[in-house]
Write a protein that binds this DNA or RNA. Structure first.
Lengths: 251, 251
DNA sequence: CGGACATTTGAACACTCTCAAGATTTGTGG
DNA sequence: CCACAAATCTTGAGAGTGTTCAAATGTCCG
């Protein structure tokens, strides 16, 4: 597998997908101290209301941003793939207004705020690079808002699967048109604002239409063109530098 | 009215609601060149796909961020109040992945990117201040996602009205518990992901429950406590420095 | 093998939509 | 200042999408 990549390299790879970095900047990032940890699925990484002193980088697995209503229902508002730094914002917005949790078994790395701040002072363009990361996060939120507000469940799911595949490919993961996705339908339902019962029905429909194949731990895209069409997906909001890497423009 | 405030002062007031600024920084902001313009309701300010060379500041009226699906339905994903700078992100994300439009007659100001970049170089902490602005924008997106995904229309509307009142107060607008809100139900419907027909019904219900009073151009909050409860509203996600200014904690 | 957890399926119900018509408000020109 | 046109808002009834509740089936792991 791709276990040979170091946390720092993964982060660099991710940053380079939307930023251009000089050799010195890359080196500085490579020198950042990262403390690695493993988590089971369904664990909180950072809780809402906390004031973290570290940023978190996803090294393997999937994590998510979520918030709860007062009556306990959960909305997942972002899903992270390896390389993502989900809480860069904590550098400048001390109070967490959301929770960060693992959606699958995860390997994460912790980088002290101090270390990041020092690197940003030395290389101001790294400040911009990190800022850009947070801006792309916001762009993805906007896209999810469109997804939740204006599309029915069937399209929402297709749309997110497109997004995930593109983002995984952007960091060199996701072979062919399939990717590991060991995530519960109950969790996914919370990302789409539907119930797990309906999630199951939507998955069935997507299978029945031969758009995707779903196993417990893996998603295979059968018809990428049609999945994009059904999901009304256009990757430009991801602001990838090489935004011409649609996974297999075939079919 | 409050027409005596200059665009720059308004922007400073907004920035100070979530940042601490030194006197020199304030002065630098006050010296920024702002080109003022007036717009009717329903006009595009910046179009999706453009690469603006200016940032826009709302001086009077309401503007919004929106995106369209391919079949033409529109999701409004943010509403701006005077003082907001809706497209700071264009400083570092050249391509607009959303549209910016007026929801009411508006006065807006344009500030060249160059001028902003120069000020940020002179005062690095202004970089952080603007970064924070974009992070709060993202926090508001997260909150809208929770609103759209997990609450029914009745609560969604209550929630947004709470948010708007708090944000207006944060820049010194909104007298008592009411504010000018000359926005069409059709536009509002697009913000809540519902139809205008249903929007009308929700407004009726809110009136019937004596939570708000609605006229064509104005919203009056009758029962602030109850509106917050119904909307499940907690302003902490706005990251206001003086987050202890609930408009009239009475009732 | 057993138990916890996850998925699937059915049926009745609820929230929201669509379509359509009528009422109200706003803006404009005479 | 009135009259009329255009836009907006309201209301009703039937249809959909998604929910709730409940039970059955499947899957993973100790």
């Amino acid at each position: 597998m791709t276990h040979s990549i170091s946390p720092n390299d993964l982060m660099i790879r991710r940053l380079k997908s939307i930023n251009t970095l000089s050799r010195e900047e890359e080196q500085a990032l490579a020198d950042l101290p990262v403390q690695v940890a493993s988590l089971e699925s369904g664990r909180d990484i950072v809780r809402m209301g906390e004031r973290p002193s570290h940023c978190c980088i996803v090294i393997a697995g999937f994590s998510c941003v979520y918030k709860l209503t007062s009556d306990g229902s959960r909305q997942i508002m972002a899903i992270h793939v390896p390389g993502d730094i989900p809480d860069i914002q904590s550098l400048h917005l001390g109070l967490m207004d959301f929770g960060l949790a693992s959606l699958s078994p995860c390997t994460v790395g912790y980088i002290p705020h101090d270390a990041i701040r020092r690197v940003c002072e030395r290389f101001p363009s790294l400040t911009v690079a990190l800022w850009r990361e947070t801006l792309v996060d916001a762009a993805i939120y906007r896209d999810w808002l469109l997804n939740l507000g204006q599309r029915e469940a069937f399209s929402r799911v297709a749309h997110l699967l497109c997004e995930l595949l593109v983002r995984l490919k952007a960091v060199g993961l996701g072979d062919d048109d399939s990717f590991n996705f060991p995530i519960t339908q109950l969790d996914l339902a919370d990302a789409f604002g539907i119930t797990s019962v309906h999630m199951s029905r939507v998955y069935s429909a997507l299978r029945a239409d031969r758009l995707i194949d779903v196993s417990r731990t893996r998603i295979s895209v059968i018809d990428w063109q049609k999945l994009q069409a059904v999901g009304d997906f256009d990757p430009s909001y991801l602001h990838l530098l090489s935004s011409d890497i649609p996974p297999r423009p075939s079919r």
